[in-house]
Design a protein around this nucleic acid. Structure first.
Lengths: 148, 148
DNA sequence: GTTCAACCTCGACCAAGCTGGAGGTCAAGC
DNA sequence: GCTTGACCTCCAGCTTGGTCGAGGTTGAAC
């Protein structure tokens, strides 16, 4: 069994985040008689899974749902990882595709200078989403330009 | 001169957001004797610019900086728009590229099942960013999968 | 001159993903 | 048994991009 400090050090995930993840139901721990957290070793793999999923752009909620769908809500095994990472790939592909389409529109628009609110192709991309305004809560995080 | 309601209706940007943008220095208005906002027509083009930039993934701060760099802090003209949208394209290209690299790593990793914290290629993407944890404030918003 | 929609400010609240601090407890070594 | 670092539980705060409501004012029409 590992203490929270050991898990933090081995995983690189700050102890504050570990408590946060537990609070959100992503990981679990048992308690000592003195109420301190103790972790199974498998939490390390689970954390790796979580961090990778976040890199791909999934929210913690997505990750929690993915983990919850595993039978017994167990730590992902190799075949779970294969299955789930395949679906991430699909998600990534879709995201890349969306960015491509946006870039193509932008490229097509450079030089036209119209930028008119109701007629420009760039403005009128068919989305319900944007009609609510492009507020942060609606959007998924992506990766910082130079990060990956 | 347009009232806030008229601008909201014509631009599709909620009046709450218009006040918010003004507060953040993205748009300006003059006031009537009775303290109500009145907008120049050029604010519509400026709003179009803002919304397009957001679609590309820029933050409001980025947009404010871009607008502020225009001589006289004027509403973007056709040539401003060309220049700025070209730099957005570069940004989009970089983002697409980053997603590609991530996807390729993920693809390479599917099936290995390692997911080990310190050795997996997916885990050890060379970034300082991730070492601070993937917190939301560090990351730029992207576009929702089906949105664009 | 009255009515009423549209406007005003200000402050609280939302999501997501955390961090940091205050004030208190536990556990291991000497 | 004392010290000390690691741990505990709240709770507040940060960021981005807004929304919502309360309580009050303006302005245009009738």
């Amino acid at each position: 069994m590992l203490t929270i400090g050991q898990v933090a050090e081995r995983s690189g995930v700050p102890h504050t985040a570990l408590r946060f993840y537990e609070d959100r139901g992503l990981i679990t721990s048992v308690r000592t008689a003195g109420n301190q957290r103790r972790y199974l070793r498998t939490v390390l793999r689970r954390l790796a899974f979580i961090r990778t999923a976040q890199r791909v752009g999934l929210t913690l909620e997505d990750v929690r749902d993915a983990l919850a769908q595993l039978p017994d809500n167990r730590t992902p095994t190799k075949s779970d990882w294969e299955r789930l990472s395949r679906s991430w790939k699909t998600e990534l592909d879709a995201r890349i595709d969306a960015l491509y389409r946006l870039r193509d529109r932008l490229t097509g628009c450079i030089g036209c200078g119209c930028l008119s609110l109701r007629s420009c192709a760039l403005q009128n991309i068919d989305d319900e989403q944007a009609s609510h305004g492009p507020g942060a809560p609606k959007l998924k995080p992506a990766l910082e330009g130079g990060t990956v």
